[in-house]
Nucleic acid binder design. Structure first.
Lengths: 226, 226
DNA sequence: TATTAAATGTGATATATCGCACATTTTTCT
DNA sequence: AGAAAAATGTGCGATATATCACATTTAATA
């Protein structure tokens, strides 16, 4: 954890871009930057939250403890705020956030953050915009999980990695099959079976965690038709 | 559709409570109040949105067109904003909103709404608070639908009506079995079967749409354990 | 009130998915 | 390097749920 000079930061949020030099100085004084490795817990569910967490770089999973196993609600890729809604209202973390890749997080004092909301309306509006986008995105995810059968959900998750996270048709999964299952809302065994099926199909080339999409069109069809 | 005097309105949102007399006058000039009957469409998916919709009284379902059948994302009870996130960003309605009971909606010009966000920081903060609560609530719903089996989902929906919507253990469902199914994310037939089961159990007294909860404790257990 | 349409309940069957068991591979740690 | 632990793939049986079919009730409409 070390102090930062936020003025020089290249990965500001849309909201932080709205802060003036003076406000950025205040932010610098109240911002602690921390690095995390894969598997490190960044935010712990049920703990009291006193800081807003901004994901400066890296990839994180947002998850909740279920009765039996964890459910991954979504993946969040930098730059983005982590679990912003938990910072308002009851100030209890409703979810956990765990690093999937080496990540850097800025922890900002929640009162300073609120001060910016109150004193800089451009900042406030950008926060509202970000929350709007998130909420729409979450509904979309929710729908996927609600109306698709397993093969469609797996197709969906693969497309998520390719199109949203890595912007490439070849990538190395940053998660175990178990986590992939927790993300798709199905069992580990089903993930395994479907991935081998895709591999036999020549829809994907699956080699452990190394994935290559061979037939994106088909994958999209499967994802859409459920 | 008629003009209103917002100063006298008894069902202001938390945000609108923060407006001063002057701002309330502006709101009055830019607010159209409309009444809807059950089945009436208030917001139409994919249409361009130029107004913020505030649900002054009544009950509404938020739903999206699926490939085969509709999915009900949630029920919204007055007082609350309807689909607020659709008003920012691309300004396209991502969902439909349809009245389930006689409802009254205030349509507020989105630019006036934005003006309040920019000029009244208390207003802006209340909007952020409302959006935060919504997002947490949505995640909760999402989890329910993700990790529960049918009987738990039906228990959940019944408890939603009893505890959140009607605040009573006896109520008349404002929805068909089909809609109940769309809300729980299961089939109509499964809803029927589970409701008769609950009726035989003496967990519920089911008489058409008239529901009475006889064993709330059990119902909660079923809802929680899935 | 008669007629039609919509909503509902329920049995039988098909099917998708889970859960378990176990072999095998990969990773982690000493 | 070697041992232990974790992750992974796969067959098989159990099970929850969807789907189809049809009777019956309830509501809507002329």
């Amino acid at each position: 954890m070390d102090k930062t000079i936020c003025q020089l930061c290249k990965s500001k949020s849309a909201a932080t871009e709205m802060l003036n030099d003076n406000e950025l100085s205040v932010l610098s004084e109240n911002c602690a930057v921390t690095n995390f490795l894969p598997g490190d817990i960044i935010i712990k569910q049920d703990a009291h939250s006193t800081n807003v967490a901004f994901l400066k770089s890296g990839l994180v999973k947002i998850h909740v403890a279920g009765t039996v196993k964890d459910k991954i609600l979504k993946l969040t890729k930098a730059p983005a705020y982590l679990c912003l809604p938990s910072n308002f209202g009851d100030k209890i973390n409703h979810f956990s956030a765990t690093a999937l890749e080496p990540t850097t997080v800025c922890f900002i004092d929640v009162n300073v953050f609120k001060k910016f909301i109150y004193e800089n309306s451009d900042f406030a509006f950008q926060i509202i915009l970000e929350m709007s986008k998130n909420e729409l995105q979450n509904f979309h995810n929710c729908l996927n999980n609600a109306q698709k059968q397993n093969i469609g959900r797996v197709a969906d998750v693969i497309l998520l990695f390719a199109n949203t996270i890595y912007n490439s048709n070849t990538f190395i999964l940053p998660v175990t099959r178990e986590e992939l299952a927790a993300l798709a809302g199905i069992t580990r065994e089903s993930v395994s079976r479907i991935l081998t099926e895709f591999n036999n199909d020549k829809t994907l080339k699956v080699n452990g965690r190394q994935i290559t999409i061979l037939n994106e069109k088909l994958l999209k069809q499967i994802s859409e038709k459920g």
